[in-house]
Computed example of a mutant assay.
Amino acid sequence: MLDINPLLLSITIVVFLVLIAVLNSLLFKPLFNYMNERDASIKNDLDKVGNNDAEIAALTAQAQSIVNEAKLEAAALREKVIAEAKELAESKIEAKRAELAKDKAEFEKSLAESREDLKSSLLSQLPLFKEAVKAKFSQI
């Protein structure tokens, strides 16, 4: 029924081995080389990413320190501006107080003068008032 032909069997084995050798040299070795290069590239990229993380952390720390310094400078500048504004306001208040004190002194002086004028006016008219009062009492 089935006869095994040794010549065909040996030729088939030789063709199979040649096919394995050709596939190994043309397909498998380049494929393995590509896979090894890809693994090395991935490892290299991961190492670079790890280095980038350290650089990013360093840059973040540097940026944070710059922000903190800027906040301190802004606070100092704000305090300086507030102090200058307070000094300016105090000087304006003192100037206004001096002006109001001057106005008050002038008002008191004019009030005293008006009082003296009124007093002298009333004293000058006192005899007339006495006469008018005597006249009224005499009518009663």
Rank of each mutant, 00 (worst) to 15 (best):
N44I: 04
K136Q: 10
K102P: 03
I4Y: 09
A21H: 05
V18G: 05
Q62L: 03
Q64V: 01
L8E: 10
E108V: 02
Y34M: 05
R78Q: 15
Q139A: 13
A61R: 15
S25H: 14
S65Y: 06
T60V: 04
Q125I: 04
A132M: 08
E94M: 01
N36E: 10
Q125C: 02
K86H: 08
K80R: 13
K92G: 00
E87G: 10
L59I: 08
A54G: 01
K109H: 07
Q62S: 06
S25Q: 13
N68K: 13
I13K: 12
L31R: 10
K104C: 00
L72A: 08
I140W: 14
L122A: 10
A76I: 04
L31A: 11
K136W: 15
K48P: 01
F16C: 04
A40G: 01
N68H: 06
K109W: 01
A74Y: 09
A105H: 02
L27I: 14
L17A: 11
A98T: 04
E69R: 14
K119A: 02
E87C: 02
Q62C: 00
A57R: 15
E99M: 03
A57H: 09
S120N: 15
R78K: 15
Q64N: 13
F129G: 03
A89W: 06
L111S: 07
K43I: 00
E113V: 05
F129D: 09
E108S: 01
S65W: 05
E73A: 06
M1S: 09
L23R: 11
L2H: 10
S41C: 00
S91N: 14
R38K: 11
L23N: 15
L111P: 01
K48I: 02
A70W: 10
L118W: 07
L88D: 08
P127A: 00
N5M: 07
L72Y: 06
N52R: 07
E79C: 01
A132D: 13
V49W: 11
A21N: 07
S120D: 11
L111N: 11
N68E: 13
D39A: 09
A112P: 03
K130C: 01
F129A: 08
E131Q: 13
A83F: 05
Q62V: 00
P30Q: 03
E73C: 00
R115A: 00
S25N: 10
A54H: 14
S25V: 06
S138Y: 10
F32D: 09
K119Q: 03
L27W: 12
K43P: 01
L23V: 05
N44V: 04
Q64G: 04
D47W: 08
M1K: 02
N24G: 09
V18W: 12
S110Q: 09
D53H: 13
K102D: 06
E116S: 01
G50R: 11
D3G: 05
L27Q: 14
E37H: 01
N52Q: 09
L77I: 04
L77T: 09
L8W: 11
D117T: 03
E106M: 02
A58E: 15
K130H: 03
N44Y: 14
Q125F: 10
K130S: 05
E73H: 06
A74P: 03
A112C: 02
L23G: 08
I42C: 03
